[in-house]
Simulated scan of single mutants.
Amino acid sequence: MSSKTFPTLSREQELWASGSRFVIGMDEVGRGAIAGPVAVGVALIDRSDPRARTPWPEQLCDSKLISEKIRNQIVGPVTEWVVGSAVGMVSAAEIDSHGIIAALAKAGAMALDDLLADAHLRAQIVQDGATIILDGSHNWLGAMASGIPVVVQTKADRDCVSVAAASVISKVQRDNFMIRLANETPGYLFEGHKGYASGAHIDAIRTLGPSVHHRHSWLTKILADEQLEGIGE
């Protein structure tokens, strides 16, 4: 664990000091996969809530830096530590139809809609202010932010507690979705690679052809054009 960089509340505290009572960490999972949905998670921290002054699960960090076993162990405590969380997912078919950036924005909007379904919370945000910390180098959420200001930070999933929490929550939920998908669509080994382009996954696509859960427009470098013809008709 000593080689890992663990997140802090420093950025969230800066935003609290600037006037936002709520900070919403946001992170995506599955952007680079060739099958399955892209997922966007949100995790809300409230400076007025006692949980903001208590330690978060000590193994919490960017979901890419911890094992599946650890993620599954801490996702419950992480979900309990934050004030609220949600995950939005957009299918492979929609990614093919509209592109990954539009899919990310839609998934982020879905997660925010779920998080803000509580009318009391929405009223508090309007009254006391909120800011979204978006992991990355550009604001792919754009106009889908529900009117909430967005700050973009590279490596926020590594450095910011709220974003690390969103990272773990969304990663576990998407992984569980891919495991269920493996039971429904056997042969592609989704339960292992979770839709990413492993050697075993590519071999399965070449043997079985793409499934309806694959991002067909992403497979042109893997499969010959004629293998893609007629898929989904």
Rank of each mutant, 00 (worst) to 15 (best):
M1V: 08
S3W: 14
T8Q: 14
T8W: 13
T8D: 13
S10H: 14
S10P: 03
Q13H: 14
L15H: 12
W16L: 01
A17R: 14
A17Y: 01
G19F: 11
R21C: 09
F22T: 07
F22C: 05
V23H: 02
I24M: 11
A35P: 03
A35Q: 00
A35L: 07
P37L: 05
P37E: 01
V38A: 09
V42I: 01
A43D: 06
L44K: 08
D46A: 08
R47K: 14
R51V: 06
A52W: 11
P55Y: 10
P55T: 02
W56E: 05
E58N: 12
Q59P: 12
S63D: 04
L65Y: 05
I66M: 02
K69H: 06
I70C: 03
I70P: 03
R71I: 04
N72W: 00
Q73K: 15
V75S: 12
P77V: 05
P77T: 03
P77C: 14
V78K: 04
E80C: 10
W81V: 05
W81P: 04
W81F: 04
G88Y: 00
G88V: 08
V90C: 02
E94G: 02
E94M: 11
E94D: 15
I95Y: 02
S97W: 11
H98K: 15
G99Q: 11
I101V: 15
A102E: 14
A103V: 00
L104T: 07
A105P: 08
K106Y: 00
A107F: 04
G108D: 06
A111E: 10
L112H: 01
D113R: 15
D113M: 12
L115M: 14
L115R: 06
L116Q: 09
H120I: 11
L121Q: 06
R122H: 09
Q124P: 03
T131Y: 12
I133D: 00
I133E: 07
N139G: 07
N139K: 07
G142N: 10
G142K: 00
A143H: 13
M144Y: 07
S146Q: 15
P149R: 13
Q153V: 06
Q153W: 03
K155Y: 07
A156V: 09
A164R: 04
A165S: 13
A165V: 00
I169W: 02
K171C: 07
R174I: 00
R174M: 09
F177E: 02
I179Q: 08
E184G: 08
F190Q: 01
G195Y: 00
S198Q: 08
S198T: 12
A200E: 12
I202G: 10
I205W: 04
R206W: 06
T207A: 13
H216G: 06
S217K: 14
S217L: 12
L219R: 08
A224N: 13
L228W: 02
E229D: 15
G230L: 13
G230P: 10
I231M: 14
I231N: 10
E233H: 12
